[in-house]
Amino acid sequence: MISRRGFSAAILSVLAASSLTPAFAQTPAGLVPHRAVYNLELAEASERSGISNMFGRMVYEFTGSACAGWRVNFRFVTQLDSGGEKKTTDQQSSTFEDPKSGRFEFESRTYNEDRLEKEVNGFAERNPEGIAVDITSPEEKQVDLANARFPTQHTLDVLNIAAKGQHFYEARIFDGSDDGDKTLATSTVVGSPVATEADAKDLKAIGALKDEKAWPVTIAYFDDGKMSDALPNYRMSFKLYPNGVSRDLTMDYGDFVLKGSLVKLDMLPGETCKSK
């Protein structure tokens, strides 16, 4: 539910199934293990962007639990047409977030035309002063950052304020994106719950959730410390259900906008945290 390697920054937990039964094993945090596939297409692009067409596919896999930790595997493949020149980019990432120890592990790879262009690996640990980041690749580096929320923590924060009927939330996040050495400031706006559109493209994919209401959510991402006097780096909008499901994605990067439509979801094995 992220920038999660740029495009996935605010993609929150996604769920789809033909019904919502106990067999789907929601975690105690209310997030359900799943694999979601989105088709992406260009909604608009300015002349300055130089983009004539862009499309792709995104796969988002969420597993784990509040007691065992959460893992997100993400892949985003796009084909960009700019001035008659076509370019294929493949972004892959994997993160692990342990709410008990305050540890966050991240690794990412970016391929252009099947050639590895960038790889970043490392981990972050929360301490009394903030977050200590150890980057292990492409070269070893240690960075101390201000305290921040990790991605799944941020997802749960948004769900919590939405459930309380609150509409605004600001937070600093760390997700290991880009070079893994900085935090981002976020500003979240939550609207009143709305029903699923009768003509929604993903009506079949969302299954039983078609009869449920969802919150319209928009999250803007800024360079840390610049939220008050700058435009966001990018903005994500989506519909968010109480159990963490999100759909109807819009990714606004200023010069161009992508729309994401849910086309396939698979429920994955879950686990229940046992009290001692």
Rank of each mutant, 00 (worst) to 15 (best):
G225H: 09
V263C: 04
G260E: 02
C273K: 05
G176K: 11
L209P: 01
A124E: 03
W70Y: 15
P232C: 04
A220S: 15
P269L: 09
E139A: 12
M267I: 14
G83S: 12
E97D: 14
L262K: 06
L42A: 10
L42G: 08
K182D: 00
I219T: 12
R35A: 15
R115H: 03
N127C: 04
E85W: 02
E140L: 07
A66M: 10
G130Y: 04
T186E: 01
M251D: 04
V143I: 14
E140F: 11
T183M: 00
C67A: 11
V245F: 03
R172P: 07
T136W: 00
D134T: 00
R48S: 14
S261Y: 05
K100E: 14
E212T: 08
P138T: 02
A16D: 08
W215H: 07
P128E: 02
W70G: 03
A162L: 06
T63S: 10
Q153H: 04
R75F: 03
D266W: 02
V72H: 05
P151K: 09
D114L: 01
R235C: 05
K87V: 12
G165M: 03
S65C: 08
T78L: 12
A205K: 10
S228E: 15
R235Q: 12
V72T: 13
K141N: 11
R35I: 06
K226F: 12
K100A: 15
G6N: 07
Y241V: 05
L12K: 04
D90P: 11
V263Q: 04
E125C: 04
E97W: 14
L80R: 09
F256N: 03
F96A: 10
E44D: 15
E170F: 02
Q153C: 04
W215A: 01
R75Q: 13
R109C: 00
L265V: 14
V59D: 06
S108W: 02
S101H: 13
L145Y: 08
T63K: 14
V263R: 02
K274W: 01
N233S: 03
A68Q: 15
D199H: 07
T155V: 09
R35G: 06
D252R: 02
A16F: 05
K100F: 11
I219G: 01
G122H: 11
P99C: 11
I161P: 00
Y60K: 07
D199C: 03
P216C: 02
D229K: 06
S94T: 13
V189S: 13
L265W: 01
A205V: 04
E197N: 14
R35S: 15
E140C: 02
A214M: 02
T136C: 00
P28T: 06
D81Q: 09
Y111D: 00
L249T: 01
M251L: 14
D134L: 00
F104M: 11
E197S: 15
I131V: 05
Y169C: 08
S19D: 15
L184P: 00
R103A: 12
D211Y: 10
Q166C: 01
M267K: 07
A220Q: 15
A162E: 05
